[in-house]
């Protein structure tokens, strides 16, 4: 019994090691990919900025314990999320373009969608 348990915990430990290792490899290969490409670097720093912006807004609302102009908070937060996913979509297409959509068209579509998103968001802020 005891032995079995020990081996079980050993296995889980090794699994966690594997887990962290694989995360590490993924991270390092990501760094490699980004370092060579200025476009991706730009996009990724924008992504990081959006995440920080969203988190700051969220923390702010938690901190003041009041979400009074809820519209404003929501549109501020959602536009971060929305811009984030749009950027990721663009990034995915830049790495491996979808068939039938060139990189230029993808960029154009991204801009149009972002404009629409911003328009709605500004409208929602009141």
């Amino acid at each position: 019994m005891v032995k079995k348990q020990g081996s079980g915990s050993n296995a889980t430990v090794s699994k966690f090691v594997q887990f962290s290792e694989s995360l590490g490899t993924a991270y390092s290969s990501y760094l490699k990919e980004v370092n060579g490409n200025k476009q991706l670097l730009l996009i990724d720093s924008f992504l990081a900025f959006l995440v920080v912006l969203g988190v700051v807004q969220f923390l702010f609302v938690l901190l003041i314990r009041d979400n009074f102009p809820f519209n404003a908070f929501l549109s501020g937060f959602i536009i971060c999320v929305g811009q984030f996913v749009l950027l990721v979509s663009l990034r995915l297409q830049l790495i491996s373009p979808f068939e039938g959509i060139s990189k230029q068209r993808a960029f154009g579509e991204f801009i149009v969608a972002s404009l629409v998103l911003h328009f709605i968001s500004v409208h929602f802020v009141n």
């Binding site: 929305g82 749009l86 979509s89 995915l92 979808f98």
Partner: peptide, 10 residues
């Protein structure tokens, strides 16, 4: 990913 997230966010 790009289809769903765009649809949902907007």
């Amino acid at each position: 990913y790009s289809a769903y997230t765009t649809w949902y966010a907007i």
